[in-house]
Measured scan of single mutants.
Amino acid sequence: MPVRRGHVAPQNTFLDTIIRKFEGQSRKFIIANARVENCAVIYCNDGFCELCGYSRAEVMQRPCTCDFLHGPRTQRRAAAQIAQALLGAEERKVEIAFYRKDGSCFLCLVDVVPVKNEDGAVIMFILNFEVVMEKDMVGSPAHDTNHRGPPTSWLAPGRAKTFRLKLPALLALTARESSVRSGGAGGAGAPGAVVVDVDLTPAAPSSESLALDEVTAMDNHVAGLGPAEERRALVGPGSPPRSAPGQLPSPRAHSLNPDASGSSCSLARTRSRESCASVRRASSADDIEAMRAGVLPPPPRHASTGAMHPLRSGLLNSTSDSDLVRYRTISKIPQITLNFVDLKGDPFLASPTSDREIIAPKIKERTHNVTEKVTQVLSLGADVLPEYKLQAPRIHRWTILHYSPFKAVWDWLILLLVIYTAVFTPYSAAFLLKETEEGPPATECGYACQPLAVVDLIVDIMFIVDILINFRTTYVNANEEVVSHPGRIAVHYFKGWFLIDMVAAIPFDLLI
């Protein structure tokens, strides 16, 4: 008679799926529990143990900040960024110097990925580790590398530091407007667009060049630039800015003055950032001319202004700041037409079709709590990747769950009947059967004279019903998954307890 339990259901295979997918890609990662103190490590794979030199037993239950890997060259700011990422709910990448158990130093890129439950609360953290440099290539500990984003994938490793954006290309926007319009339909740009040429040739750093990471940081200074100062900065030398009595002219307006920039070969870094931020506020060169004239017309309804409409929906549905990093990277690809469009465009503009998908598509409701890094690593669709929660398995109709209350009560009843059979069957065979043979035949009273025979008949009927119930009862397979398919249940029961239950259900007393 089957006594099969499996009270692990309803099970959740999400954690096993993450481990299996990460292991298949030869990654070095740990999984931490966000619900406990210090976000203790609950799993670390073999790749991480080989990377740091510690065994799994030495890593388990330690804080996922990996303070046991810190050393003299470990930056405090990087460690603080990892700790801050564990307090938030967004994906974050941090470069930090770690030390192995043998004392060797290596520069590592740590990717902190939160995993949320159905309520939107962070319950786990996945920390992925990628070695960037070994100890002989690690720089000085005073050099802070965590304020910069990861290198873009479309640049060669040897040319990542030679990417320079020439400031004269930004200063000569109005001069290039006529050349853009003359391109017409034969050019790649839309009317009114501004073409910015980027020099990728390796050259020595000069005062006129600005690194790509500095251009990325310009967006942080746009908020500090007032509207009046932006307007004066875009007017140009024809209309000098008016300053109040006793007030000095704005240095932001002076930063885009061609006369002032041409007199000296070098520009201050602050002026460069502010000038680029001011130019980015204009949607095209037409807006710059309109600002000089004193009238700013409404933005025209053409394809170039609607190019950012799908980007707005993608940004609203993005799951991490990696989408913004990807957008900034692609927006700086050289030799393309940049349409400086305000994100607050007309909502009635139709979304044009684009061959290049900048932001990841909208994630469906079932995966809105899973970050983009987890979705990318697992390579699963929205119909396959579940949320991290207890999910009731989908069972067929008329199927009994093996952990249901009805099955528990039924098993206790069958257990009592088995005990009765084990006690009274030998007793009936030894004593009652002998008395029946010696006594007179009682054929007239039937079952009324033999109450134990009636009980034995009921017990046999219950055993037959138990066999039928076992054909529709779920079970737990070797992978700790609840199986509810009727065919698989029948095959599993035939290979197991079916023969024993059938022999126990045969009414031998009635056959004798």
Rank of each mutant, 00 (worst) to 15 (best):
P2L: 06
P2H: 03
R4H: 15
R5D: 09
A9C: 09
P10V: 13
P10T: 12
P10F: 15
Q11C: 14
N12W: 10
N12I: 05
N12A: 15
F14M: 07
L15S: 02
D16C: 06
T17E: 08
E23P: 01
G24Y: 07
Q25C: 14
Q25P: 11
S26Y: 08
S26Q: 12
R27A: 14
K28R: 09
F29Y: 12
F29W: 01
I30G: 01
I30A: 01
I31G: 01
I31P: 01
I31N: 01
N33W: 03
N33L: 06
A34G: 06
R35W: 08
N38H: 15
N38D: 06
V41K: 01
I42W: 01
Y43K: 01
C44A: 14
C44P: 01
C44F: 01
N45Q: 01
G47P: 01
G47T: 06
G47L: 08
F48E: 01
F48Y: 01
F48R: 01
C49Y: 01
L51D: 01
C52M: 09
R56Q: 04
R56E: 03
R56I: 01
A57C: 12
A57I: 07
E58M: 06
E58K: 01
M60W: 01
Q61C: 14
Q61R: 13
R62F: 04
T65S: 07
T65M: 06
D67P: 14
F68M: 01
L69Y: 01
P72R: 05
P72N: 03
T74D: 01
T74K: 01
Q75K: 10
Q75N: 15
A78V: 04
A78Q: 05
A78N: 10
A79Y: 02
Q81R: 10
I82G: 01
A83T: 14
Q84P: 01
A85E: 01
G88Y: 13
A89F: 14
R92F: 01
R92W: 03
R92N: 15
K93V: 08
V94E: 05
V94K: 01
A97R: 14
F98S: 01
Y99R: 01
R100P: 01
R100Q: 01
K101T: 01
D102R: 01
S104T: 14
C105F: 09
C105W: 15
C105R: 13
C105K: 05
F106C: 01
L107N: 15
L107V: 15
V110Y: 01
D111A: 06
V112Q: 01
V112Y: 01
V112K: 01
P114L: 01
V115N: 01
V115G: 02
K116A: 08
E118F: 11
E118P: 08
E118K: 04
D119S: 08
D119I: 06
A121E: 09
V122Q: 05
V122H: 06
I123T: 13
F125D: 01
I126D: 01
L127G: 01
L127V: 09
N128L: 11
E130C: 04
M133Q: 06
M133N: 06
M133H: 14
D136N: 13
D136E: 06
D136G: 06
D136V: 06
V138R: 14
V138Q: 14
S140C: 07
P141V: 14
A142K: 09
H143N: 06
H143A: 09
P151R: 12
P151G: 12
T152A: 05
S153Q: 06
S153Y: 04
W154P: 08
A156R: 13
P157V: 07
P157M: 11
G158P: 12
R159Q: 09
K161G: 06
T162A: 06
F163Q: 15
R164V: 07
R164M: 06
K166M: 05
K166H: 07
L167N: 15
L170H: 15
L170S: 14
A172C: 05
R176K: 06
R176P: 15
E177D: 08
S178K: 08
S179Q: 06
V180P: 06
V180L: 12
V180M: 07
R181G: 06
G183E: 05
G184H: 05
G186N: 07
G186H: 14
G187F: 06
G187I: 13
G187S: 15
A188N: 06
A190L: 15
A190C: 06
V194S: 06
D199R: 01
L200I: 07
T201R: 09
A203K: 13
A204R: 15
P205C: 06
S206E: 15
S207M: 11
E208K: 01
E208L: 06
E208W: 03
S209E: 08
S209W: 13
L210H: 05
A211W: 01
A211I: 05
L212R: 07
D213I: 03
E214Y: 11
T216E: 10
M218F: 06
N220Q: 06
N220G: 08
N220P: 13
H221E: 12
H221P: 10
P227W: 05
P227G: 07
A228F: 09
A228Q: 03
G236P: 07
G236L: 07
G238A: 04
G238P: 05
P240T: 14
P240L: 13
P241E: 08
P241S: 10
P245T: 06
P245R: 07
G246T: 14
G246A: 15
Q247N: 03
L248R: 11
L248M: 07
P249E: 05
P251H: 15
P251V: 11
R252C: 15
A253V: 14
A253M: 15
H254T: 14
H254L: 07
H254F: 15
S255C: 05
L256G: 07
P258R: 11
P258H: 09
D259Q: 03
S261V: 13
S261R: 10
G262N: 15
R269D: 07
R271P: 14
E274A: 11
E274C: 04
E274R: 07
S278N: 08
R280H: 06
S283L: 14
S284Y: 05
D286W: 04
E289A: 11
E289L: 07
A290F: 01
M291G: 06
M291P: 11
R292P: 11
A293C: 12
G294T: 12
L296H: 08
P297S: 07
P298N: 01
P298S: 13
H302F: 11
H302W: 15
A303T: 14
T305C: 07
G306Y: 14
P310V: 11
S313W: 01
S313Q: 11
G314K: 09
L315V: 14
S318P: 07
S318V: 08
S320D: 15
D321I: 08
S322H: 13
D323E: 14
L324N: 14
V325R: 12
V325P: 12
Y327W: 09
T329R: 12
I330L: 11
S331R: 11
K332P: 11
I333D: 15
P334R: 07
P334Y: 01
V341G: 15
V341A: 15
D342N: 07
D342R: 07
D342H: 05
D342S: 12
K344L: 09
P347W: 03
L349D: 07
S351Y: 04
P352R: 09
D355Q: 05
R356P: 12
R356N: 11
I359K: 11
A360D: 15
A360V: 15
A360P: 15
I363K: 07
K364Q: 09
E365I: 04
R366L: 07
R366F: 13
T367K: 07
H368G: 05
H368T: 14
H368L: 14
V370K: 10
E372S: 15
Q376S: 09
Q376F: 02
S379G: 04
S379F: 05
L380H: 01
G381E: 08
A382V: 06
A382I: 06
A382C: 12
V384L: 05
V384H: 04
